[in-house]
Amino acid sequence: MIGIIGGTGPQGRGLAYRLARAGVDVLIGSRDPERGMAAAEEVRRLVGDDVSVQGAGNADLPGRADMLLVTVPYEGLASTLRPLAEQVGDMIVMSAVNKLSFAGGPQALPVEAGSSAEEVARLLPAARVTTAFNNVSATHLRNAEHVFDEDVLVCGDDDDAVKRTVEVASRVDGLRGVSCGPLRLAFTIEAMTAVVISVNATHGVTAGLRITGL
């Protein structure tokens, strides 16, 4: 089961929907457990009852999920994750967080820790943190008619965590997880999101990233 921390926003709901469609059991977390349960009910109506889609408070996720996926806005990372550090322990934690600004066009913002994923690792010091789904459009995730044909760039410092993240990403129809190296590359992966958004806006397309020759 994948527990999505902050899963009631557009990205979290979209990922919950796509993962559930792929047959992955999902637990949608929120600061307000009732919001998590409402989001889970919404996803269940879309995918049916063949897969378990549940809602809960963020604090309940570490004890119930096998892996965690963080979709909290960067500004809310510290307040959301710091209280969970002991419960999370050495779990695999996938970060889909990007610190972006849209003033004057999309651009990546600097992060003191190096990247949003490294900030997640700082707040959850025992966790095995990876990047996942950073460049995948939340709008496309929630659009049942959108057909993906792109890669999910995965980096991390724990080989097993990277392997399992690649496997999770590759479960989603049309997505392929690609191992890219250590977690220090996370900022580059996160920053590419601004490029993808700009390309889509400039050309009126629904482009994503694809690593060729692999």
Rank of each mutant, 00 (worst) to 15 (best):
N135G: 03
E167V: 02
A78C: 03
A117L: 03
R184F: 04
A132G: 13
A56T: 09
G57V: 06
K99L: 10
R164S: 13
A56V: 11
P182T: 09
R184H: 13
G105K: 02
A103D: 14
G104I: 03
L185Q: 07
V168L: 15
F148Y: 14
G104C: 03
L183Q: 02
C155S: 04
H146L: 10
A108C: 02
T131V: 05
A85E: 15
R128P: 04
A65I: 12
D66W: 01
D160W: 01
A138M: 11
K99V: 01
G181Y: 12
A127I: 04
L185Y: 04
L100M: 06
D151V: 05
V51K: 08
P106I: 13
L183D: 01
K99Y: 11
C180P: 00
Q87A: 15
Y74E: 14
M67D: 11
L77I: 13
P182R: 10
R171F: 00
S137I: 13
A144N: 09
M94S: 01
E119A: 05
E167Y: 05
Q87I: 01
V93A: 09
L100F: 02
A144I: 11
P182C: 10
A138Y: 14
V93F: 09
D149C: 13
Y74M: 09
V93N: 07
P106W: 06
A103W: 08
V53Y: 12
D157E: 13
P83K: 04
E86H: 09
Q87C: 02
R122E: 09
D158L: 06
A138N: 14
G177N: 13
Q107E: 12
E118N: 01
C155Y: 02
H140R: 12
D157V: 10
N135A: 12
R164L: 15
L77C: 10
V129S: 00
D151A: 08
D151Q: 06
E119V: 00
L81M: 09
R128I: 02
T139P: 00
E86Q: 14
S170W: 07
L124W: 03
S137W: 04
P106E: 08
S79W: 00
D60Y: 02
A65W: 07
V51T: 14
C180V: 10
L68C: 12
L185F: 03
L81Y: 11
A161Q: 14
K163C: 04
G55F: 10
A103Y: 07
G89H: 13
